[in-house]
Design a protein around this nucleic acid. Structure first.
Lengths: 227, 227
DNA sequence: GTCTATAACTCGATAGAC
DNA sequence: GTCTATCGAGTTATAGAC
C-alpha cells in the first residue's frame, strides 16, 4: 500500500489542471511552483521572487494573476489540499475498512494503525508543513478539517456501528469511539516524533500497536476472572 | 484549583530575578519585554524594535546583550519555560495524584482530565503560542519535553504501578498505560479546539470525560456477561 | 539611530497575436 | 493598431544587525 507517493499524485493533479483549465502556460507554472515550494518549505519561507524563479516567470507576472501572496495560498493550495492531500490521506482508510469485513475489529484497527504510521513516516516533511500552515491559516485548517475529519469520522462511525450491531463492540456512542480510536493513533504518532527515540525503542512499533489495541478493546482495569 | 493564572506566576518569576540576579536594570527589562511579547504574539510576530520599545531601551542595547533575536529566544525563553510554564503545568497534577490515594483510579483520572481541560481553557492563547513555537524551535521543544513529559511520565508511572500492585489495574507496561492516558486527554483537547463546536456540544464535557474513562477502564469490546 | 538585506508589491515599457 | 500577457527595475516597508 502507499505505492504511489505524494509527488505522483501531485503530477496527476497538475496534468488535470493543464487539460481542463483555460490558464496560460505561465499561470500554470506559477501554480505548480507555488505548490512545490510551499510543500517543501512552507508558505512563510517561500518568497515571491523564489516562486517566480522556480516558475521561470517575472515576479510581476505573479501579481497579475494573484493579487497577493496569501491569494496564491488560498486560491491554489486550499483546492490542492482537498484534491490531493485529502484523497491521498483517506485512500488507504477506505480500502482497509472495505476489504476487511470478515476480520475482527481489533485486527482491522491494527492494520489501520500500522498503515497510518507508515503514511506519516513516508510523508513526514509534508505533514509537518501542512500542520504548521493549518495552524496559521484558518482557510487551510477548514479545508483539511471539513474534509478529512468529517469524512473519516463518517467512514469510521459506519464501520463501528456495524460492529456494534454484530455484537462485537459495546453499544457506545460511535463518535466517542471514533474520538478514542483517533486519539490513540494521534498519541502513537506524537510519541514517536517527540519523546520518540529513547523509550519508544524499548518496545518495537508492532508491540506498541498491539498493546494499544489490547487496551482499546479490553481497557486497563483488572477484572475478576471468569471462573 | 488554578487560582493563580499565568500572569501572576510570571510576575513572581520576574521579581525573583530582580532579587537574585546581577543583571543590569536594562537587561532585566529586555528579558521581561521579550517574554511578554513572545507569550502574547509569538516569536516571529515580535520584532526587536518592539521589544526595545516595550523595554524602554534602544534597539542597539538588545544586541549588546544577545547576539541575535533567536539568541533571546533560547537564552531567555527556554529557561522561562522550565521555570514558569513547566511548574505551572505540573502543579495541579502533583496535587491530584498525591491527594487522592483513597479514590478509585478512574475517579482520580476523571479529576485529572477535567483539570487539564480547565487549565488549557484558562490559558488557551499561551498554549497555542507555546505549541507553535515548540513546533518551530528545537530548543524550546526540548525544554518542554524533557521536563514536562519526563516528569509527568514519572509521576504517572509511579501512580500506575501502585494501582497495578493493588490489583486495581492490569499488569501492563506503565509507559504504555501512560501513553494511552495521555493520548486520550490529547484527543479530547484536540477535538474540543478543532471540530469542537458542532458535535462536541452534543455531549457535554463531563459526559465526554466520563465515557472516555469508561472506555479506558473497560475497553470497547463487548464481553459475555458474567452470569 | 544608521545600515543592509530582503520581503511583498507596483507600474510603465514591450512585444507578439489578431 | 490595439489588446493582453509579460517583464523586471523600482517602490515601500520592515526586518535584523551593530
Amino acid at each position: 500500500m502507499n505505492e504511489s507517493g505524494f509527488e505522483e499524485v501531485l503530477q496527476t493533479f497538475l496534468e488535470e489542471i493543464k487539460r481542463e483549465d483555460k490558464m496560460t502556460e505561465k499561470q500554470r507554472r506559477i501554480l505548480e511552483a507555488s505548490i512545490k515550494l510551499f510543500a517543501e518549505k512552507g508558505f512563510h519561507a517561500s518568497s515571491t521572487s523564489e516562486i517566480a524563479k522556480e516558475a521561470g516567470v517575472a515576479e510581476g507576472t505573479i501579481f497579475r494573476h494573484y493579487k497577493s501572496k496569501k491569494d496564491i495560498l488560498i486560491a491554489v493550495v486550499a483546492p490542492a489540499i482537498t484534491k490531493i492531500a485529502v484523497p491521498y490521506i483517506l485512500k488507504d482508510v477506505r480500502k482497509i475498512l472495505a476489504d476487511n469485513n470478515d476480520r475482527s475489529f481489533a485486527d482491522v484497527l491494527a492494520r489501520l494503525y500500522k498503515n497510518r504510521l507508515e503514511l506519516i513516516a513516508a510523508n513526514e516533511k509534508h505533514f509537518r508543513i501542512l500542520l504548521q500552515e493549518a495552524f496559521f491559516h484558518e482557510e487551510l485548517r477548514q479545508a483539511l478539517l471539513y474534509t478529512v475529519a468529517t469524512e473519516m469520522k463518517q467512514l469510521a462511525s459506519q464501520f463501528v456501528l456495524q460492529r456494534i450491531d454484530a455484537g462485537e463492540l459495546r453499544p457506545l456512542p460511535p463518535e466517542v469511539i471514533f474520538r478514542v480510536i483517533f486519539s490513540l493513533i494521534l498519541g502513537l504518532v506524537t510519541f514517536k516524533y517527540t519523546v520518540g527515540q529513547e523509550e519508544y525503542r524499548m518496545l518495537d512499533e508492532d508491540e506498541q500497536v498491539a498493546l494499544t489495541m489490547d487496551i482499546l478493546m479490553n481497557g486497563i482495569a483488572r477484572r475478576p476472572e471468569h471462573e
